[in-house]
Amino acid sequence: MPRSNPKLILVHEPEKACFDRLVADGHAPDRAAEISSYLAQSTDLAPDFDSLAVACDKRGLAFVPVELDAAANALAGADPNVTLVWTLTDGIAYFRGGAAPALARLNGLRTIGADDSLFALCQDKFRCGAVLGALGLPAPQAGLARRGEWLVEPPPSPAGWFVKPNRLGAKIGIWPDSRVSDLGHVLELSRRVFSHYRDDVVVQPYVAGSNVRASFLGLKPETGVEALGIFFVDSGGDFQTMADSMALYGETGQAAKDAGTYAEPELEPVGSSQPAADRKIRAIAQKLISGLGLRDVFSVDFRVEADDTVHLIEFEVCPGLPCFDFRDYCRRQWGLSLADAMAETAANRLFG
């Protein structure tokens, strides 16, 4: 049997497919729209598919975008010798992208990114925090509440607490009152989150500082933490809410661009003003690579204080590739557009 042509399969879960499934499962349409908006990178990357096809073709491979619901059949028929699978979306609860790397492994296919166990872990913030703590990393301790009841009480915190859904996306807040000064209001928020999203809440001591995003793309297999792009992300607020997120990405973000009201947060290199914090973040990333198994493509969110204290908030195995910050990272670190950076990464894995 002749060998198939080399190809990169990009598995993605569309917002609409997720929205329809959530509504069918009984979620209110407004809530389903909010939840599915976390898949906006599938919407935002679609206009790049033609550029990705050209960039891949220049490097001797085909580009094949596959919607998640078609992934089982597409991956079952792929040639393991010449196929690489890149999963764009994760998820074990509202989103189901975590199934794609598992399907790739089932079919003996090589993948870009972490293995499927981390796709599951990163979407459960409470369990993830426990693992990060066991690795000795500076992640805030957490409590866990469900529908107004404590499952695990949070540690004391003179600065108050921060409340976020346990399994919903990767944002660090939903509403402006996600920073809380009394535990009674925490339980009220847990009731609100359960009512809106059917989720528990993680309750962490509030940590001060500026928001920092560290982005990584291993363009070559031997790429290390020297290639991290570490930037302050200043959106003008203390933390990002659901409304802030929806204003940046997907259909809402595009509408803002069309109306001339779209404004990206400012990005400033951490190393320019706080080199000690930059070094700490690279050391943490190395521990995540060696101790946890992050590889190929990921992002990590931090809070960095003025005295260079670094707090690890969470990591992503499926960073927002078409987002402004990752495109900026590809230009600064690799001198490439997003499409060329993705195609070069895939070619190096298949032919390197």
Rank of each mutant, 00 (worst) to 15 (best):
D308H: 12
A276G: 02
C318M: 08
M1C: 11
M246G: 05
A243V: 15
D116F: 15
D69G: 08
L338C: 02
D234G: 10
V193H: 06
L294R: 00
A256G: 06
A28S: 10
A263M: 15
G136N: 07
G108M: 08
P221Q: 08
I281V: 09
D177F: 06
L312A: 10
L137H: 05
I313H: 04
P265G: 12
P47V: 09
E34S: 14
G253K: 10
E264W: 11
L183K: 12
S245N: 15
R191K: 14
L61Q: 05
A70P: 00
V201K: 04
G148L: 07
V85A: 04
R105L: 09
S190Y: 04
L336F: 03
S273H: 13
L144K: 11
D244T: 10
A46N: 07
D244E: 10
K16Q: 14
E222A: 12
G113R: 02
T241E: 06
V202N: 05
P101N: 07
G260M: 08
A341M: 07
R282G: 04
R303D: 10
W175T: 12
S36P: 03
T89F: 05
F126Q: 07
A263D: 15
T87F: 00
N5S: 15
V225G: 01
D79Q: 06
R146I: 09
V300P: 01
P138T: 09
F63G: 02
L88T: 01
L228T: 05
L61N: 05
V202R: 02
F194C: 11
S190W: 04
L109W: 04
S235W: 11
V233Q: 14
L45N: 01
M342P: 01
P275R: 09
I289L: 07
L248W: 12
R327F: 02
G271Y: 07
P29D: 08
T223N: 08
P29N: 09
